[in-house]
């Protein structure tokens, strides 16, 4: 699947999300030159042998042809369009911004970003309304700005790809169907349901996830989940992001096998459940997957 070179643009943010993975971290904000250096580090090591006979030493194959910028909130950098332009000039075919979308409520700023060469966006929404979203971002008005930003994106005449990330937590999981419905109404291209909160019982959120998946598929929009193990996702395996993109994300998480994993047919593939979740809920919600028609294909997919 499409692999993005992920580049961190700094810790600054215009929201103060309760569940922000960077909130307590003191990451430094990289300067322009170090970002350019990161963009330059994009060659397979060692270079693969020449494909063309007499081609003069072979091609330096680029490791990535796509780049994703994330933060913090990358749109707060005043050199962002310069960074995007640099990525474009370095031959990155897809330049994606992972953002809260607030800054796009300013159409002039959005045009600047699009003109620089960014057409792929991943935007986080915490709820279907300002009460939930603004509570979780701890920023009044952030919901309106994000929605306005997405509406502005839709106004762009250029080709674009919009993915909505919905983190699931204790405070918003009952609103999941409404949030997905709101996202679908914005004409988006993909939805990610991210399991965010280890205080939230998987048993409680699962019916909402099933409904959300059905809503999205009914509306012909692809939807995936993150952070949910095979044993929970039985029957919904097609929607497990990890099958396609692996378990490593830039959200640092430690996974652990639970007591029943040793009997599960996916045990070699699946890293288990977030360690903190197991501390909270123990093993009660899990049962090993004993058989599935997908196992061989999924294992083959992972080579």
């Amino acid at each position: 699947m499409i692999r993005y070179k992920e580049i961190f643009l700094g810790n600054q943010c215009n929201n103060e999300c309760i569940y922000c993975p960077y909130r307590y971290k003191t990451f430094s904000n990289p300067d322009f030159d170090s970002i350019i250096n990161a963009l330059n580090q994009n060659v397979e090591n060692p270079p693969i042998p020449p494909l063309v006979k007499g081609g003069g030493g072979g091609f330096l194959i680029k490791k990535y042809d796509s780049v994703a910028f994330y933060g913090g909130e990358p749109t707060l950098r005043n050199d962002l369009s310069g960074i995007i332009l640099a990525a474009k000039r370095k031959g990155f075919r897809r330049i994606k911004l992972i953002t809260n979308g607030c800054a796009f409520s300013d159409i002039q700023f959005l045009l600047e970003i699009a003109n620089a060469g960014c057409y792929l966006f991943e935007i986080k929404i915490w709820g279907s309304n300002p009460d939930i979203h603004d509570y979780l971002t701890r920023t009044t008005g952030s919901f309106q700005q994000t929605i306005q930003g997405i509406e502005n994106l839709q106004r762009l005449s250029c080709d674009k790809f919009i993915c909505i990330r919905i983190p699931m937590c204790c405070q918003n999981y009952k609103d999941l169907e409404a949030t997905v419905t709101a996202a679908l109404g914005l004409g988006i291209n993909r939805i990610i349901l991210q399991f965010q909160d280890y205080h939230l019982s998987l048993k409680d959120v699962l019916p909402h996830i099933k409904n959300a998946v059905n809503l999205s598929i009914l509306n012909r929009v692809w939807i995936v989940t993150e952070g949910l193990p095979f044993c929970i996702m039985q029957g919904l395996e097609h929607h497990m992001s990890e099958i396609y993109y692996g378990w490593n994300t830039f959200f640092e998480k430690v996974f652990k096998h639970h007591q029943y994993c040793q009997d599960c047919i996916y045990q070699e593939l699946c890293p288990g459940v977030e360690e903190k979740y197991l501390e909270q809920f123990r093993n009660n919600e899990f049962s090993p997957v004993k058989e599935t028609k997908y196992l061989q294909d999924i294992l083959a997919f992972h080579g």
């Binding site: 499409i2 250029c158 012909r220």
Partner: peptide
């Protein structure tokens, strides 16, 4: 035989999303 209707439908929806992402064209 091993590709029931629901899964073909899901594959089509997934492909539609991937098509948009992979084939993004700059103006």
């Amino acid at each position: 035989p091993d590709f029931p209707y629901e899964e073909i439908d899901k594959a089509v929806i997934m492909a539609y999303s991937l098509d948009k992402e992979y084939n993004i064209k700059s103006p």
